[in-house]
């Protein structure tokens, strides 16, 4: 188990280094830059004209559908990886492959359904 954690300790270290780097940059930036806020500067930027409406506008529900698609497919793809490492091992072979094809078939059916339902076409 020590090995297991060791690898990620280093990764964590790098992440910490990255965070420090960003923090340092911000700190440096704060020291270096001027700060003269005016109302105009702090206004929302819409190509120079005064902003219209609210910042958090309603958006299309279509994005949700993409999100949904993604969540389903990407998460299902998770199953591929453990399988990928063992499917060709001794004693597995064709049957395992076929089973995974069945799984992929399920995914494809879902995709086909979404496609035929016009989900993938932007209106």
């Amino acid at each position: 188990m020590p090995d297991y954690f060791h690898g990620y300790t280093v990764v964590g270290l790098v992440a910490v280094v990255g965070v420090l780097f960003v923090a340092f940059a911000f700190l440096a930036g704060r020291l270096l830059r001027p700060s003269v806020p005016t109302p105009e500067k702090l206004m929302v930027y819409e190509c120079g004209v005064d902003p219209v409406g609210e910042g958090w506008a309603h958006t299309q529900v279509r994005y949700y559908i993409y999100a949904f698609l993604y969540v389903i497919f990407a998460v299902d793809a998770v199953f591929l990886f453990p399988w990928a490492t063992v499917f060709a091992a001794d004693g597995f072979g064709a049957a395992t492959l076929v089973e995974m094809f069945v799984f992929l078939g399920f995914l494809s059916v879902g995709l086909l359904y979404a496609w035929r339902k016009g989900v993938l076409t932007w209106t």
């Binding site: 949700y64 949904f68 969540v71 389903i72 998460v75 299902d76 998770v78």
Partner: peptide, 16 residues
């Protein structure tokens, strides 16, 4: 793994 997948499905259906 299965939990993740099904949680995703659940959240999808639920959000809908």
């Amino acid at each position: 793994l299965f939990l993740i997948a099904l949680a995703a499905a659940e959240i999808g259906v639920g959000l809908a």
